[in-house]
């Protein structure tokens, strides 16, 4: 039985003629301890998909299931790491994690909780920055903090909404390794959204493409069978890696072309005009006068 599933979900914003349908009849099943990467073009409804999985939005049609039970409200069992970190700017690093721990594990004593929070601060190597405010941290540190906060809730499923897209290339690579390291520790179920094929191939067990919106749905998934741990330095020369990457990329490009041909092209008729040169213009004025 899948841990997290999307059953024929349709979702859109607005109503009537204003309605913009983001997802139509989308189904997805995520198995336990699986690392799934959802890949799609920008504007294809990736973040909406994540909001649906997290329970922040309710599907118009269909259901979101967790362990087989329909869920309509968000909860700490589906820990989401937001694209823009969503840290509480008035709280320090320690307090940002503490607020989540306090809510999810109310039975912990004060000192237990302190140790527990510290463990997660150390886990994402933010040790020493406990009392800093989020605005004093770099982008990568903020994302690590956001990750630590989510991990501290010990969610059944970890939802990563383009967690690395706002970071520079170097920080991004470091954080990719870090996420993989954390994941390897307990192999939690992860759904990660990304727009980077390399990232998806490097990190995931399975890649699910999202067809371009509107009315997006899922394409056929690609299993990533590359052995772990995957080393980014040697991977670039691995024929399997290259092959898979090319397959995913060409598929993505093909569905993009397809969607372009599907999209009705509107032709605007242009008026039939002749350019008039200044010398001609002068003559025209003279004759009319």
């Amino acid at each position: 039985m899948p841990v997290l599933g999307l059953d024929n979900v349709t979702f859109g914003y607005g109503s009537g003629s204003e309605r913009y349908e983001v997802l139509r009849d989308a189904s997805l099943a995520i198995e336990k301890n699986e690392f799934v990467a959802v890949i799609g073009f920008s504007g294809s409804g990736k973040s909406t998909l994540m909001a649906l999985l997290a329970g922040l939005e309710k599907p118009d049609v269909g259901e979101v299931r967790l362990d087989g039970n329909a869920k309509s409200e968000p909860g700490p069992e589906r820990g989401i790491v937001f694209q823009n970190y969503s840290l509480l700017p008035w709280l320090s690093v320690f307090e940002n994690i503490n607020i989540a721990v306090r809510k999810v594990f109310p039975e912990m004593s004060r000192s237990e909780r302190r140790d527990y929070v510290q463990k997660y601060v150390d886990l994402v190597t933010l040790t020493g920055s406990e009392s800093k405010k989020p605005h004093e941290l770099s982008g990568g540190m903020r994302q690590r903090l956001s990750l630590a906060r989510t991990l501290s809730m010990q969610p059944e499923v970890l939802l990563l909404d383009e967690p690395l897209s706002a970071l520079d290339a170097l920080t991004r690579a470091v954080l990719q390794d870090e996420i993989i390291r954390l994941w390897e520790e307990d192999r939690r179920t992860v759904v990660m959204i990304t727009n980077d094929v390399d990232e998806a191939v490097l990190m995931a067990d399975r890649i699910v493409p999202l067809t371009p919106g509107p009315s997006a749905s899922f394409g056929p998934s690609f299993e990533v069978t590359l052995p772990r741990p995957r080393d980014r330095a040697t991977l670039n020369f691995d024929p399997d890696f290259k092959h898979l990457r090319n397959r995913v990329t060409s598929y993505m490009l093909s569905i993009n072309d397809e969607s372009k041909t599907l999209r009705p092209t509107i032709e605007y008729p242009l008026p039939d005009l002749q350019p008039v040169l200044p010398s001609q213009r002068r003559r025209a004025v003279r004759t009319s006068a």
Partner: peptide, 20 residues
């Protein structure tokens, strides 16, 4: 986003009011 954090943490009304 801050309200979404509160929703994920399932904060009650008063907690949401005073903490977020």
């Amino acid at each position: 986003d801050h309200l979404n954090v509160a929703r994920v943490l399932q904060l009650g009304f008063w907690e949401r009011l005073f903490k977020i």
